[in-house]
Design a protein around this nucleic acid. Structure first.
Lengths: 101, 101
DNA sequence: CTTACCACTTACTTTTCGTAACTAACTATA
DNA sequence: TATAGTTAGTTACGAAAAGTAAGTGGTAAG
């Protein structure tokens, strides 16, 4: 896939957070750390795709993955500072949806 | 496709403006009315998909399509008030990308 | 009569997504 | 000992969406 000639950084943002389910995953994590099952239950995403998305977000430094070796194992996902930085954008979209949808 | 149980309106927003190229198309239109070719040239989208996306946006009342029967024909796309309402969100994403990418 | 312009369509290939079943590691119950 | 249950994934496969390239229709200039 090629990039936009206009603003490569905006294009990359859109490519990343515009991916399917990304917005809702971030919205969910803005509520605080959540484990895999909690995120999966909060929206109709499949485990396959949630796993894939969380890996992308981790790779981009937007979320952190913490494993607690309890029984059964607990894995929590937390927003980094970079991830928290997206709160304004998510809020704006939420406000728009309340006003117009 | 099913919907999120959490906030259906946010889910719908994300589903709409989170679609591929939507963010950049809106960003482009925030600069003012643009014709098909201008949008197409500003990013590496294909005519097929741009046509499809603009139809979705028109159907949702986010953009308006105006045909000027000149030679050759000129077709301009303009944001409605509803579409302008997304400026805040796009701006937030742009700012985030400047800060973090 | 050919070329060019614009705004699309159409046909076809490749990538991504959705669904469901399966795995690993461990515990609790019978 | 065997069976079932927990979480956090992974795998396989068909369906849907996106990418690519060529074609269409209307007009006019050369």
């Amino acid at each position: 896939m090629k990039e936009s000639a206009l603003c490569p950084r905006l294009a990359k943002s859109m490519d990343l957070i515009g991916k399917r389910w990304m917005g809702l995953i971030l919205y969910q994590l803005l509520d605080g750390p959540q484990r895999f099952n909690e995120i999966e239950s909060s929206m109709p995403i499949s485990g396959r795709l949630l796993s894939e998305r969380l890996k992308e977000l981790e790779k981009e430094g937007i979320v952190e993955r913490h494993v607690y070796t309890e029984v059964p194992v607990r894995v929590e996902y937390t927003l980094t500072e970079k991830g928290q930085g997206l709160k304004g954008a998510i809020d704006e979209i939420e406000n728009w949806s309340k006003r117009w949808l």
